[in-house]
Write a protein that binds this DNA or RNA. Structure first.
Lengths: 296, 296
DNA sequence: TAAAAATACTCCATAGGTATTTTAT
DNA sequence: ATAAAATACCTATGGAGTATTTTTA
């Protein structure tokens, strides 16, 4: 009967993401009846049901999911309108939601964030640390502005700006310090400690060991680099560590650090953001700032 | 301060199209203060002025025109959401805004519209006859759903579906009926009557006469095919006529009609619509219907 | 000074809240 | 029987109208 409103579209997005009116209402900071009413009105306006209501959960109808695919880019474009206005300001102000992968976060962020807020005093930096896959999803969903990750990420909707190339070093028990540094192939036969599934650093370490259909022989896993270092110190095996993590992680652990001979294994650290963001010029500024002040 | 609303974006589009708050208000069927308030709120939300106010007219600011470029595709995408729901219905119902070029309108439309409403009784057909350029602008602005034009139009955002190829015939005074039918080159040296600038049929006729930097020798112009026919009957010159116009236009005029030898000059008539419309499947149905029932 | 936009105010439609009922497993 | 959505009802915000003032070329 009436007209579609942005509010309805946002509520619709929340409900379809949550699969639940109550939780969606909470996320939108309104009551459950309010969201029910708005969804109902939207359905009436469209003349089509958007959700199948079941007792414990709801699901998008066939029409609903086609609708959803069109709604999402619209909402992102509307979000961008506000950023367009921000981008028109000189400098860089307002909220910046920054994502970072766990194997970079603790080592680079303190200085990065310090430099960033020093350079742009009007900036309100919010942080989120999680794995690459989730960061990408959050960027695409408009829940993050920018993320610091290992490149390439190969998502067509995202722009990638490389910052620097970082080598991996070998971490061994102190007793092994005199042994020759293994190459990738040799490493593969050793007891290599890895981060659990989902960390891009795990895959980068594995790929250094050459093509292998499965994880290497008798590998063990940890959920953070700190844990891996402790495991190495306890003689459970060897691991790779990004160079930026060496100082912090080996400070209080009794382990031996060795550089690999060239070609060293490396990863490329860079920034990513949605290509359509009107803040692209500002994000480039951030990349520049990073290169000149934070670079390792 | 608050949130951007679709209403504000629609008002903004109207004001920026009209360059005038009052006229924009009229188009939106609201009062001038209402639109002023909404634009003001939008400007406050964005923290940027959208318009420069002058005494007799207003103009987009630099920011306003960047904003406008982003707003337009958003509004089109929102318009498409309603069509998405329509497209989910079986058959084809609701309002269909059909555009047509002047050199097709009077000859094809009566039967076309009859067939269309017969095949889809739920359809409410609205018509607009004007020149190709304006039809394209209206399609892109979401003010038309579909248009019947001469192809190609080569607008990347529009889909083109050819319907049929139509020959042009030569119209001469009856006294010239015995003379040989001229080819394009010869025609160029005769007194060729043309439609005024802006009609695609004018350009098609001219192109048959071969490459010519200027209009042909001593040409004269009319604003409709009927006028041209009357001019020919009065011995002012010769003209080309699309075949579909012959029956209606030569009924009461004393002129001679002659086919050209092959290669005949022709034009291709087809339908165009925005590529992103969710109604594409329905529009294809219309094209099919046209081919099977209205074809010449 | 005249055309056009902004402001002041009033009113009503509607979005959202609370309390409650209905529905589906 | 229970979790979840829908409905009923009330309130308050804000969008839109009319009347008027301010602005600027």
């Amino acid at each position: 009967m009436e007209n579609i409103t942005i509010k309805q579209l946002r509520y619709f997005e929340a409900v379809s993401a949550q699969g639940h009116f109550g939780r969606a209402a909470e996320i939108c900071s309104i009551s459950q009846p309010a969201i029910s009413v708005q969804i109902k009105e939207l359905e009436q306006t469209l003349g089509q049901k958007l959700f199948e209501r079941h007792a414990r959960h709801i699901r998008l109808t066939a029409f609903g999911s086609v609708f959803s695919e069109r709604v999402q880019p619209i909402l992102r474009a509307i979000d961008d309108l506000s950023d367009l206005a921000r981008a028109a300001n000189p400098g860089l102000v307002g909220k910046l939601r920054l994502g970072v992968i766990p194997t970079v976060g603790p080592y680079l962020l303190p200085k990065f964030v310090t430099d960033l807020t020093a350079a742009f005093p009007g900036l309100d930096v919010r942080m989120r640390e999680t794995q690459t896959e989730k960061l990408i999803a959050d960027l695409l969903a408009g829940e993050l502005d920018i993320a610091l990750v290992a490149l390439p990420i190969s998502e067509p909707a995202l722009a990638e700006v490389p910052l620097f190339e970082e080598p991996f070093v070998l971490l061994r028990a102190v007793g092994d310090a005199h042994k020759p540094v293994p190459n990738g192939e040799t490493l593969r036969k050793m007891r290599l400690l890895l981060l659990e599934e989902g960390h891009c650093f795990r895959d980068q370490a594995l790929s250094f060991c050459g093509p292998s259909p499965n994880a290497p022989h008798e590998s063990m896993e940890g959920s953070s680099l700190s844990t891996l270092v402790q495991m190495v110190a306890s003689g459970l095996g060897v691991t790779l560590l990004p160079e930026m993590a060496v100082r912090l992680e080996t400070r209080s652990a009794d382990v031996s650090v060795a550089r690999f001979p060239t070609p060293e294994p490396t990863r490329q650290i860079g920034l990513i953001w949605r290509k359509t963001t009107p803040m692209a010029a500002q994000f480039q500024q951030i990349a520049e700032l990073f290169r000149t002040t934070t670079a390792v």
